[in-house]
């Protein structure tokens, strides 16, 4: 068999033997931004459909969860930076070719939108939180303003939700040097996953039967879409360039096979899909609460696998002969 073996002593931390520059912080950030995107879209659609009374949790309580999520996401992103002292440089320039630069600016708009959606629902959804805000003239004005302009904000939120969910996937796609992550289907896959995540949160939090019924259907639909998009993504990679074909082999017999199928596809997609399919036929039993929890787990695992396999897959594969113990001899 014709082979090429590349041996080097290069051993740069987080680069060798595989790139590991993006860790749990980026994965958590992608997951939480996806959840926020889903919250923006669902809340906005309920407002635009004038269904706030029937879907109280989605209209009035979900935005705060989205706001907390985006706050945590930003915190994790900050924690990821290895040179934190100049973090403000993200806002010192706009680089049109850099997807992350688009994200930095878009996230500011997303934070504003989810904040306004939170404020419009605060009096109805969280009266205990609204009372201290209402004690201040500025607070009252802000709550009134957000309630009055909730429909224009909702229109903007639908657009921003779709864009920011697409951004999380596009960020992966744009990294051409990471073949597994570089599929054009990542953006719709991450959007669908974000919607499924938000639907799962609604199912966990909502108590109104009508709201629970609708979102169990939405969740079922989103997981079906997710399975289809995932299958298409794998097919897309399997028909791609040589490095993409090699990268997808990591989940078909390679080192990530067990993790991908046993710890992601089955528990994070197929089991909730079966539960939700069962739930569509009749009353939603309490044990079925496991389904949205598994969807949340699956959404996190999706991002974990895309980021991890993306980084492991690459154009180069060096056999490293660097022995750090030799450095001790120099001391």
């Amino acid at each position: 068999m014709r082979e090429e073996i590349l041996i080097t002593t290069r051993a740069n931390p987080k680069i060798d033997p595989n790139v590991a520059a993006w860790g749990w912080q980026v994965i958590a950030d992608l997951f939480l931004v996806g959840l926020t995107a889903g919250a923006l879209i669902f809340t906005a659609m309920v407002i635009l459909g004038r269904k706030e009374e029937n879907f109280g949790f989605t209209a009035k309580r979900l935005p705060l969860i989205g706001l907390i999520s985006i706050g945590l996401a930003m915190t994790f992103l900050f924690l990821k930076l290895t040179h934190k002292i100049v973090f403000w440089r993200f806002f010192g320039a706009f680089v049109p070719t850099a997807v992350m630069s688009w994200g930095a600016w878009l996230l500011q708009l997303v934070i504003l939108a989810i904040l306004l959606l939170t404020l419009q629902g605060l009096r109805g959804g969280y009266p205990a939180l609204a009372r201290p805000v209402d004690k201040f003239r500025l607070g009252t004005w802000a709550l009134d303003w957000a309630e009055r302009y909730r429909r224009p904000v909702a229109w903007a939120s639908v657009v921003l939700g779709v864009i920011i969910a697409f951004y999380t996937g596009t960020l992966m796609t744009s990294m051409d040097a990471r073949p597994f992550a570089s599929s054009g289907l990542m953006a719709p896959l991450f959007l669908t996953s974000g919607l499924a995540t938000a639907a799962a949160v609604v199912l966990i939090g909502a108590r109104a039967p009508e709201e629970r019924l609708l979102f169990s259907r939405v969740l079922f639909g989103m997981v079906v879409f997710k399975v289809l998009l995932l299958a298409l993504t794998l097919a897309n990679l399997a028909n791609g360039s040589q490095v993409q074909i090699e990268s997808v082999q990591m989940v078909f017999g390679g080192e990530y096979t067990r993790l991908f199928w046993l710890f992601f596809v089955i528990p994070g997609l197929l089991v909730p899909l079966a539960i939700e399919a069962f739930g569509l036929r009749g009353k939603r039993a309490s044990w079925m609460m496991i389904s949205p929890v598994l969807v949340l787990y699956g959404a996190y695992m999706l991002r974990q696998l895309v980021v991890d396999i993306g980084q492991v897959s690459g154009y180069l594969s060096y056999v490293n002969t660097y022995n750090p113990a030799l450095l001790d001899l120099l001391r």
């Binding site: 931390p13 520059a21 040179h83 934190k84 990294m175 690459g314």
Partner: peptide, 26 residues
Amino acid sequence: PNKCTGCGACIAACPYDARLIMNEGY
């Protein structure tokens, strides 16, 4: 170094894995 946040986008984008992270983080 005064503009680099250490976000890692360049590392992910380089097909040669030719970049490194200094001890200071940039």
